Simulated scan of single mutants.
Amino acid sequence: MKTLVVGGSGATGRKLVEQLLALGQEVKVILRSTGNIPEHWKNKGNCSLVIANINEIGVEEMAGYIKDCQAVVSCLGHNMSMSGLFGKPRKLVRDAVQLLCDSIERNGADNPIKLVLMNTAGNRNKDLVEALTFKERIVIGLIRKLLPPHSDNEEAAEYLRVNIGQNNPLIKWVVLRPDSLINEEKVTVYKLYTSPIRSAIFNPGKTSRVNVGHAMAQLIVDDELWASWKGKMPVIYNEGSR
């Protein structure tokens, strides 16, 4: 199986790529430059690098990158800087998801493509009743207005939930929602939940980036796991976050 990864040079995207390579999977990574990636990626026969700015890629070009892939993962996120938080592109994640979906549909395929989107536990799954307290609604409303990346994540997930939906013959998706991301070197015990088990605002849990990478890789390679979460938005926590 070959997987296209966008956002693969980011802190979590790197963990995903490493997990896929360790599993012997073929990986194609789209990134702006090779300057900050592990040197061994450049020398692995099952890892190909595409140097390009995703904001400048059109549907035809992206369709070409996806054509020989069976899975696509977006680990894109906004940099934690003033320009990353408030500058352009404001809808980096949402626009990338639409681009990927349009490109998959342009190609057509005998079998549907798996699409995994890394998102956030602070984003609700509107297919379910994920109740918020009054205080949580107030705070999230302020975050949505004051921090553009949050609404970008919301719109990206909504694009899959509403525009692609459950019955698209070419695209099957999972939106993975980690809580507060932390750095750890090794995969530890973690669990996926249908909905948040704690408040992402007032009592957040922890999710290591390497565990997120591992979970996304397993969703891609494990058909049984994929079938259990397809069309859903699981929340991932490290063990002990209950």
Results as ranks from 00 to 15, higher is better:
E56S: 15
A227G: 10
A52Y: 01
E185T: 12
E136N: 02
R198A: 01
K67A: 13
V17H: 07
D222S: 09
K232Q: 05
I140V: 11
I236G: 02
P169A: 03
T133K: 11
M62T: 05
R32K: 12
H150T: 15
L147Y: 07
N107E: 04
V27F: 01
V27Y: 01
K126T: 14
V221K: 14
S81L: 06
T133F: 06
L85W: 13
L176Y: 00
L117C: 05
M1Y: 14
T3I: 03
E239Q: 12
S81C: 08
I37Y: 04
P204A: 09
V50F: 09
E60V: 08
S103M: 10
A157K: 04
H214K: 15
V174D: 07
W173M: 09
E155T: 13
N203Y: 01
N153W: 01
K186M: 12
S228M: 03
G45W: 06
N46V: 04
V93L: 07
I220D: 04
G7E: 00
F202P: 04
E224P: 02
V97W: 11
G77D: 11
I57N: 10
N79H: 15
M62K: 10
K186P: 15
L192E: 04
K28M: 09
S33R: 14
R124V: 10
F86T: 11
G58S: 05
L49I: 10
M62A: 09
E105L: 06
E105I: 06
Q70M: 10
P89R: 10
L49G: 08
C101V: 10
L219D: 03
T3Q: 11
H214W: 08
I236W: 00
A217D: 03
T12E: 02
V73I: 09
F134L: 14
G231I: 04
L100Q: 12
D110E: 10
V116S: 11
L115H: 05
I164K: 07
K232W: 00
L160M: 06
L20I: 03
L147W: 06
S180I: 02
G205K: 01
K172P: 15
A71G: 11
S103F: 08
K172Y: 02
I37M: 05
Y237F: 00
N36I: 00
G13F: 01
I51H: 12
W173E: 09
A63N: 07
M1N: 11
G45T: 10
K15A: 11
E154N: 09
L4F: 13
K42Q: 11
L100R: 12
N238R: 02
G108Y: 01
P112K: 08
A22Y: 04
I54D: 02
L115I: 05
L225R: 13
H214G: 08
N53D: 15
K91H: 14
E154R: 07
D127A: 08
G87W: 02
N203R: 06
G35A: 09
N107C: 08
V189F: 04
